[in-house]
């Protein structure tokens, strides 16, 4: 993707640019489902232009962290603070309005795409900007078409999701998220549901977004991707952060035994 981007950022504070500064601060995040404590006090910080990847065994709580950031789950305790946006303290009573404000700052790309099957590709993308953000339709359509072209989906605007391959659907999912102009992109195992030969095209698209300076948090099992693209890798297990740091350290020379075992298992499945 070209570094000169025609899309004007919303209020000069969307997810791009390496100007630095903290975009997101999370502290003391806790969440239980029934008696099962899934998150036991998680702290995270994401700077502008950073790519943070969450890795860990299933059930470690990494997807729950992501869902809490997007207000899809309500944490039991902790604070989530976006720069220039809301600071939500989940220790007290949280109003629906606060959750909506939280969602406003980030956009989620789902493992199973979750495109709207009754809408065309273009309708999927412009739904949020037009219906929720109330931006002029002509402008949003123009922007959507540019994003589609850059994702290699130029001829697909009038197709329905069911007519697309998994990789194409996920790239539409990414464009739908981008069109919201979020401060932060959230990816929840974006390639886990894809056929192996389609994983590459989606990871390439995400890598290009990272190079363009989008700030993102991604839950993934693609260690090669994390090693190449991530600015920080956070390894979670049992609802706590076990280890975090530069991918070269966490993925090549982990300090913790649990991290070492996990990385080893992923690189040598049998």
């Amino acid at each position: 993707m070209s570094p000169t981007d025609p899309t004007p950022p919303r209020s000069g504070d969307d997810g791009r640019g390496a100007s630095g500064g903290r975009v997101l601060t999370v502290s003391g995040l806790r969440k239980s489902f029934g008696g099962n404590q899934v998150l036991k006090s998680i702290d995270l910080a994401v700077d502008q232009g950073q790519v943070l990847t969450l890795i860990g065994p299933s059930g470690s709580g990494k997807t729950t962290v992501l869902r809490c950031l997007n207000g899809l789950e309500v944490p039991d305790a902790g604070t989530v603070a976006f720069r220039g946006g809301p600071t939500v303290d989940f220790g007290g009573q949280v109003k629906r309005r606060q959750l909506m404000a939280l969602r406003d700052r980030s956009a989620m790309v789902f493992q199973h795409y979750n495109l709207f099957p009754h809408m065309t590709v273009l309708q999927n993308i412009i739904e949020g900007p037009v219906q929720v953000q109330k931006r002029p339709k002509a402008e949003v359509v123009h922007e959507a078409e540019e994003l589609l072209a850059r994702m290699g989906l130029a001829g697909k605007r009038n197709d329905y999701p069911a007519q697309l391959s998994g990789g194409q659907q996920q790239r539409v999912g990414i464009v739908r998220a981008l069109a919201l102009r979020p401060s932060l992109l959230l990816f929840d195992e974006p390639t886990s549901a894809l056929d192996p030969e389609l994983v590459g095209e989606v990871l390439t698209a995400i890598k290009e977004l990272a190079e363009e300076g989008w700030t993102m948090v991604m839950v993934t099992h693609e260690l090669a991707f994390a090693r190449e693209v991530a600015s920080e890798v956070v390894f979670m297990d049992g609802g706590v952060v076990v280890e975090r740091g530069h991918p070269d350290v966490v993925l090549r020379n982990p300090r913790q035994e649990r991290t070492r075992q996990f990385v080893h298992r992923l690189l040598n499945p049998f």
Binding site: L72, R103, F110, N114, L115, F116, G128, Q131, V132
Partner: peptide, 27 residues
């Protein structure tokens, strides 16, 4: 209608009512 459709509606900023009207009921 799969739960993910509600979540996709919420993640693009829609309220419950709007998600119901625009995303869930048509399906």
């Amino acid at each position: 209608v799969p739960k993910g459709q509600w979540e996709a509606g919420h993640t693009i900023g829609m309220s419950r009512g709007k998600t119901l009207q625009r995303i869930i009921l048509p399906q």
